[in-house]
Simulated scan of single mutants.
Amino acid sequence: MNIRVTVWNENVHERKNQIVASVYPEGIHGTIAEGLNADPAITAATATLQEPEHGLTEEKLVQTDVLFWWAHCAHGEVADEVVERICNAVWSGMGMVFLHSAHFSKPFKRLMGSPCNLTWREAGERERLWITSRGHPITAGLPNHFELENEEMYGEPFGVPEPLETVFLSWFSGGEAFRSGLTYRRGAGNIFYFRPGHETYPTYHDANVQRVLINAAKWAHNPAPRLSDPNIAPNVPVTEALEPIEERGPRLHQHGEEGFR
């Protein structure tokens, strides 16, 4: 099995902020893709905001089994037609993984149908992530908890729909807690939101975080053929094979007694 992943990044901070550029010299997308490509079952490529159609043409999405999305300061620059294209791909069966500030991205808000708001504080605080769903495929190979020495704090309430499962719960040194790993299904597509990943910290170099992302790609992958058009509601005509129930006579069971109509 080869899972085709596209890692999308708005690629803005890396081009403007020297701290981010030093932490991620190949871009956040490059570091994430490199970590994913360490698994032989995954082939990861990248796309960015600056490319034509943001690098997400119809053809590219057809060739993408799971789309990863990192964004922060350029949500509004993503074209609405590309957002609709992404959502159609998810409804048809493409998996999607939203990272960190992608909670406020157009595709995530469109798929969630909610404000997706939260509280935050950037203070370089320690984050401890606890596994809250033991045995979940996304937690395979992880300890019961792991820590990130410096991260941006996200706090509840988190304005998203109730998830299928909460996989991780974060605690921050400021005392806040946050649901940091949430799974959803929209149409035929599997969706995972994973909280850590502030651009000025080396979060995506962390071995445990890389393990989460590899597991998430495998979990989000739907091997079934894509739905041809998730937006149609076909009218099914009546055929001769659909005999009206009231016209059917009594049926006999195997032992000869009369059955129910």
Rank of each mutant, 00 (worst) to 15 (best):
M1R: 09
N2H: 02
R4L: 06
W8C: 00
N9A: 01
V12L: 04
V23R: 05
Y24V: 03
P25W: 02
E26Y: 12
E26K: 15
G27T: 08
G30I: 02
T31P: 02
E34M: 06
G35Y: 02
A44Q: 07
P52G: 11
E53Y: 01
H54G: 12
H54P: 14
K60N: 12
T64D: 02
T64L: 02
L67N: 00
L67I: 11
W69I: 02
A71S: 14
H72M: 10
H72A: 05
C73W: 09
A74L: 01
H75R: 04
G76W: 01
E77D: 14
E84L: 10
C87Q: 08
C87T: 14
S92E: 05
G93R: 08
G95E: 01
G95R: 08
M96R: 00
F98K: 04
H100E: 03
S101N: 11
F104H: 10
S105C: 08
S105P: 02
R110I: 01
L111C: 07
N117F: 07
L118M: 13
L118F: 15
T119Q: 11
E127S: 07
E127H: 00
T132C: 08
T132R: 12
T132P: 05
S133W: 10
P137Q: 02
I138A: 02
P143R: 08
F146D: 08
F146A: 04
N150S: 14
N150K: 15
N150G: 05
E151V: 02
E151I: 09
G155N: 10
E165N: 14
T166N: 11
V167A: 10
F168G: 00
L169W: 11
G174Y: 10
G174F: 03
F178K: 09
F178G: 03
R179D: 12
R179M: 07
G187C: 03
A188E: 06
N190G: 00
I191V: 13
F192E: 04
R195Q: 15
G197V: 01
Y201E: 09
Y201T: 11
P202C: 11
T203A: 00
N208W: 09
K218T: 00
W219A: 07
A220W: 04
R226N: 06
L227R: 15
L227V: 15
A233Y: 12
P234A: 04
N235Y: 12
E240I: 14
A241M: 14
A241N: 15
L242D: 14
I245D: 09
R251K: 15
H253Q: 15
Q254M: 15
G259D: 12
F260M: 12
F260S: 14
